[in-house]
């Protein structure tokens, strides 16, 4: 009989090598928890900062913070309000979304369903590259190239579509660095994020659903209407909202391009009317502001923070719901 070749029974006590592993696990867990807590702490700290600075300023405001259009916080009495700012923020962002949305979705559809395979990836890269351009560069380009070169186009709109209030120049209106130009620059800036997310959503549509539509005798367009778009609806809405979130907070580009004023007008091609956004206002007013003025700007920043937070939260919720439903299938 040969010598016993049995192995020793396994060590289940957790000592030896097990102990080292256990410590490593705990250290790693602690580090990741710490990182999570840090992020949370940052958000709370920023929120607290905004609140503590903003509230005294609003209290000192002699007029209603939410309905006043003027911005003269350092005057005596202090008069300032975010009405024009919120109006401009929302108007420019919505126009940007309305312009960029369909184009971005079109690009995404092209990449996912129409482009030859070899072209699809490079085009995707190019679109992503647009997102890498710094906002200040967009602002300079909008100011020095787009605004002057679009005078003819804006004039054309006024001449032929002036009956629509949007394109009405009125008696004193002049084309130039208008709300429309600023919104167009914003549109180009949010195009990549909407296109990239929409592209991912479209690519996630199961090939099986596409085949089912084709097998029924659908043309390519019908197949997209039957199989791709319904499946992607929530995801694309989420993408649009993320783009909207970006447009809401865009600072420098708007500050450079838009001729800043405190009006709340829908005449978007009138450079005399101009407009403003919360972020652009902060950028343009901060240098000259005195302490109360600074606090007033912070208050407007808090409002923007809340708006952007709400839009992003909604976008997250919508995208997650679309993911959940996709997973259920």
């Amino acid at each position: 009989m040969t010598a016993s070749t049995e192995r020793p029974p396994p060590d289940l006590s957790g000592g030896g090598l097990g102990a080292t592993r256990r410590v490593g696990d705990r250290v790693f867990a602690a580090l990741t928890t710490g990182a999570g807590v840090l992020v949370l702490a940052l958000i709370v700290a920023i929120g607290a900062f905004l609140l503590t600075k903003a509230i005294p300023a609003v209290q000192k405001d002699s007029t209603n913070f939410f309905t006043t259009k003027l911005w003269q916080p350092d005057n005596d009495p202090s008069v300032f309000g975010i009405a024009a700012l919120v109006f401009g923020t929302l108007l420019s962002s919505i126009i940007a979304l309305v312009v960029a949305g369909p184009i971005a979705i079109g690009i995404a559809l092209y990449i996912s369903d129409y482009a030859p395979r070899r072209l699809a990836t490079p085009i995707g890269y190019l679109v992503d590259l647009l997102a890498a351009v710094p906002s200040v560069v967009y602002g300079l380009w909008g100011l020095l190239f787009l605004a002057p070169h679009s005078d003819k186009f804006q004039q054309f709109l006024s001449d032929h579509f002036g009956f629509i209030p949007l394109f009405d120049l009125g008696k004193n209106g002049v084309v130039g660095r208008s709300m429309m130009i600023a919104s167009l620059v914003l549109a180009i800036m949010i195009l990549p994020i909407v296109a990239a997310i929409s592209r991912e959503i479209f690519l996630q549509v199961p090939q099986a659903n596409r085949e089912a539509a084709l097998a029924l005798g659908a043309t390519k367009l019908e197949m997209i209407r039957l199989a791709v778009l319904p499946y992607s609806k929530s995801g694309v809405v989420g993408a649009l909202m993320l783009g909207l979130g970006r447009a809401l907070g865009e600072t420098i580009a708007v500050a450079l391009v838009l001729s800043l004023s405190y009006s709340t007008s829908f005449h978007i091609i009138d450079a005399n009317v101009g407009g403003n956004t919360i972020a652009a206002n902060i950028a343009s007013q901060y240098q000259a502001a005195e302490p109360l003025g600074q606090r007033a700007l912070i208050a407007s920043g808090l409002v923007l923070f809340v708006i952007t937070f709400a839009v992003n939260a909604l976008a997250r919720y919508v995208v997650t719901r679309s993911g959940k439903r996709a997973a259920a299938v």
Binding site: A208, L216, K233
Partner: peptide
């Protein structure tokens, strides 16, 4: 080809009803 596919039906390996319908 689209007309051909209208006259020939197909059923696939994994059931693929349109999920949103």
């Amino acid at each position: 080809a689209v007309a051909v596919r209208r006259t020939i039906g197909m059923v696939f390996q994994r059931p693929n009803p349109f999920p949103t319908m």
